[in-house]
Simulated scan of single mutants.
Amino acid sequence: MARELTQLELLRELEPTAEENVNRHLKVARDWNPHDYVPWSDGEDFAALGGQDYDPERSELSDVAKAAMITNLLTEDNLPSYHREIADNFSMDSAWGHWVGRWTAEENRHGIVMRDYLVVTRGVDPVALEEARMIHMTNGYAPELAAGADRVEEMQKHGEDLGILHSVAYVTFQELATRVSHRNTGKACNDPIADRMLQRVAADENLHMIFYRNICGAGMDLAPDQTLRAVTDIVTNFQMPGAGMPNFRRHGVLMAKHGIYDLRQHLEEVVMPVLRKWDVFGRTDFGPEGEKTREELAAFLEQLEKDATRFEEMRDRSLAREAAKAAKRAS
């Protein structure tokens, strides 16, 4: 049985792939300016400068769009926590360090443009948004959200910590999940300016996903069993990075109910495309432990399919009841 590689060995062996993908990213990434995506002419002073404070009646966003925008923005706001987590598990030298800095700078634009849009258009209450930002950033990001508290505890018993493989596996799925969420939020806003802005953000998230997916794919070739264990830990315990933010559960339910991000999208637009790219269920280089892990992953995905179907049936019934009530009120 092949021994597990240390974090230092993984970083060293994967560095050429990191360098190749940093160079690839720099060639295809498009620079853009947040201020070009904000309708500044809609802005006006708030009460502190002699204007009027937020009035919910003036917001043109639906409750669903508000929930999605707030959730997506607070996720972007927590960037320092994600930066710290990635910086701790990557080397800050050579290509690794360059990527950490570049990724952080690009992600920071997302929070800038989304907040500017919401404040200028008075789409959400800026005071409540700031209070939620303070709470969420103070709480920070915990690795347990990625791999599950039980798995983290088990690893610590054996003197192990979550490392680069867990980190790149998590951000691969997380970046793709946020791409889906941003894209669908843009449509839900019913505003061409917001849609264009979030298309731009989603395009960045997709490029980031490709970087991490390629690193994790190289890890799968280098240490198949070890990487699949990390991937399975992430997939079977995955939570969106907004977990723990104020009103996350309420907002998450609204987003799932109205097609911003639900179990079916998570399975078919996020998890399965990535697993197919790595050929997880077709490759023949897993050892006994890898085969056991693959069976665990397959069983989880089968249950996730059932859960997605069950949720869709419940959602359809709920939406039908709401439509019937609305029709009755209108008659």
Rank of each mutant, 00 (worst) to 15 (best):
A105F: 13
A308V: 09
K66Y: 03
Q52S: 12
A2L: 08
G186A: 07
V119R: 08
D42H: 12
L222P: 12
K325R: 00
P80W: 03
A194Q: 07
A18W: 04
E106K: 10
W40R: 00
K187Q: 14
R276P: 05
L8H: 14
R30V: 09
A48P: 02
F286I: 01
K325N: 00
T293A: 10
V127C: 13
L145Y: 08
V152T: 10
A47M: 05
S181M: 14
K325W: 10
L301A: 05
I260W: 02
P143I: 13
E15A: 01
E312V: 03
A169R: 07
K325Q: 10
M155S: 11
P224Q: 01
N247E: 12
G111K: 03
A68T: 00
H208P: 09
T121E: 10
N108M: 11
A18M: 15
A146S: 13
V235Y: 06
A230M: 05
R283M: 08
K292Y: 14
E154D: 15
R115M: 01
M92W: 07
D150Q: 14
R58P: 00
E160Q: 13
K66S: 02
V253I: 15
T121Q: 03
G282V: 04
D42Q: 14
D161R: 06
R30N: 02
L10P: 10
L319V: 01
K325M: 10
S62Y: 14
M197L: 15
L176M: 12
G111H: 06
K187G: 15
R294I: 10
W32Q: 03
E107S: 04
E153N: 11
P16I: 04
H25V: 07
A132C: 11
M1S: 12
E296H: 11
E19P: 01
D45Y: 11
M255H: 01
N237K: 09
A203V: 09
S91G: 07
T185W: 06
E289T: 15
A177M: 11
R179T: 08
E160M: 11
Y37W: 14
P39F: 15
I193K: 11
G259E: 02
L49W: 08
H251A: 14
N89W: 08
R283F: 09
K292H: 15
H35I: 06
L5I: 09
V253R: 13
R329V: 00
Y54T: 04
E144Y: 06
R109C: 03
D225W: 06
E13W: 09
R58V: 07
A68P: 02
R109E: 01
V119W: 05
R321G: 13
N33A: 05
R276W: 00
H110E: 15
R196M: 03
Y261T: 04
A323L: 05
A326S: 11
D88L: 11
A18T: 09
M1Q: 08
T172L: 04
K277A: 08
T6L: 10
K277R: 01
A177T: 11
R329I: 00
A243S: 05
G97L: 15
I234P: 00
T172C: 02
A68G: 05
E205N: 09
P56F: 07
D36L: 01
F300D: 13
E13M: 09
P56W: 07
R133F: 15
A68W: 04
E175P: 02
L198E: 07
H266R: 02
E57P: 03
F300N: 12
R3N: 07
Q7R: 01
H35N: 00
L165M: 03
L118M: 14
G51C: 06
A298S: 15
A87F: 06
R133K: 15
G259K: 05
G148T: 12
A203R: 12
